[in-house]
Simulated assay, not measured.
Amino acid sequence: MERGYTFVLVHGAWHYGDLWAPVAESLRIAGHEVHTPTVAGHAYNAQPGERDVGHADGVASIVEYIRRNELKNIVLVAHSFGGSIISRVAEEVPELIRRLVYWNAFVLKDGESVADVSPPTYNLMMDAIAEERGDNCVVLPYQVWRDSFIGDADEATARHTYGLLCPEPYRMLTDKVPLKSFDKLQIPKTYLNAQADVAMPPGQYAWFPRFAERLFPCRVVHMSGSHQVMFSNPAGLAEKIIQAGRD
């Protein structure tokens, strides 16, 4: 891949832009420009009222970031929930995007929410957490994080990174997402699949090939690692993002 690509990395649920730092550093060392915006409502120190946002607010925040920084010809990369964001961003600014990369990310159809394509057990768990908290945010129980999200890391890394997470505005996961023109866009797409990722459980809800099929025709890139390989092997993830994003 030639040097000088512009990557915009969009984080997943419970994350914010700064958590991409080790991956972004590796991409910059390789000669690329990297941006790591934070989706509206996800700032680590956000006040409770600042998390009272919906999916459309999240999309608008990324579109605004791209326009404010006068970015163009970008490789727009998303992790997990972020996939639902970049599909809508692509509808808003298709002329600014060189390629879309979905790393173990949700690829929604028109009118779906992230919750609609998640296992019912997850939704029941999240509903209960949101009701108990009373602020319409959800947090992952540690054991779910440890076993399903970051099983390839040691205990110290799992504990440390769990402490970095922020509450997730629940509407980001439950809002229905309108995608009226996505299927007609001529933007090249890649699905990057971490093969040990069981944040979506094996079977009918597995990330791959379920969501890659929705992008067909697309490039597919595989790597080892969990849903949080950005923490367990950031340099390896950066290498695969470069492979996924090349022309």
Results as ranks from 00 to 15, higher is better:
Gly41Cys: 04
Ser181Pro: 01
Thr161Gly: 06
Ala235Pro: 00
His227Lys: 06
Ser84Lys: 02
Phe208Gly: 06
Asp147Arg: 14
Thr190Gly: 06
Gly54Gln: 08
Val114Tyr: 09
Phe7Gln: 00
Lys240Val: 00
Gly225Thr: 09
Glu2Gly: 04
Gly225Cys: 10
Arg210Tyr: 10
Tyr102Asn: 07
Val39Cys: 07
Tyr142Lys: 07
Arg219Ile: 03
Ile74Cys: 08
Arg67Thr: 13
Pro167Ile: 02
Ala194Thr: 01
Gly17His: 12
Gly236Thr: 04
His42Trp: 04
Lys180Ser: 10
Ser224Glu: 14
Ala56Gly: 01
Gly31Arg: 00
Ala194His: 02
Trp207Asn: 03
Ala56Val: 08
Asn69Thr: 09
Asp57Leu: 11
Glu132Leu: 14
Gly82Asp: 06
Pro141Ala: 10
Leu185Asn: 04
Phe231Glu: 00
Ile66Lys: 08
Asp183Pro: 05
Ser113Val: 06
Thr36Asn: 01
Pro169Glu: 13
Ala153Cys: 10
Gly58Pro: 11
Gly17Gln: 11
Asn45Tyr: 15
Gly54Phe: 03
Ala128His: 09
Glu132Met: 14
Lys176Phe: 12
Val34Lys: 00
Glu92Met: 12
Leu19Cys: 06
Arg98Asn: 12
Glu64Ala: 15
Ile66Gln: 11
Ser148Ala: 09
Glu33Val: 08
Gly203Ser: 06
Tyr5Ile: 02
His32Ala: 00
Thr161Cys: 10
Gly54Tyr: 01
Gln228Asp: 02
Lys240Phe: 02
Leu165Met: 15
Lys189Gln: 11
Glu92Phe: 04
Glu112Lys: 12
Thr6Tyr: 03
Ala115Leu: 05
Arg67Tyr: 13
Pro94Asn: 12
Leu27Ile: 01
Tyr162Arg: 07
Val75Thr: 10
Gly151Asp: 06
Gly236Tyr: 00
Leu19Asp: 09
Thr6Met: 00
Arg171Lys: 15
Ser26Leu: 04
Glu213His: 08
Trp207Asp: 07
Asp116Ile: 03
Val59Pro: 03
Met223Thr: 06
Asn193Lys: 13
Asn136Lys: 14
Lys180Thr: 04
Arg210Phe: 12
Val39Thr: 11
Ala235Ile: 08
Val107Cys: 03
Glu70Thr: 11
Arg146Val: 04
Gln195Cys: 05
Phe182Trp: 03
Ile242Cys: 12
Pro188Ile: 04
Gly203Tyr: 05
Tyr5Asp: 02
Tyr205Ala: 09
Gly82Trp: 05
Ile129Asn: 15
Pro167Tyr: 01
Arg146Ala: 15
Ala212His: 07
Phe208Gln: 03
Trp14Ser: 12
His32Asp: 01
Ala115Val: 13
Glu2Pro: 11
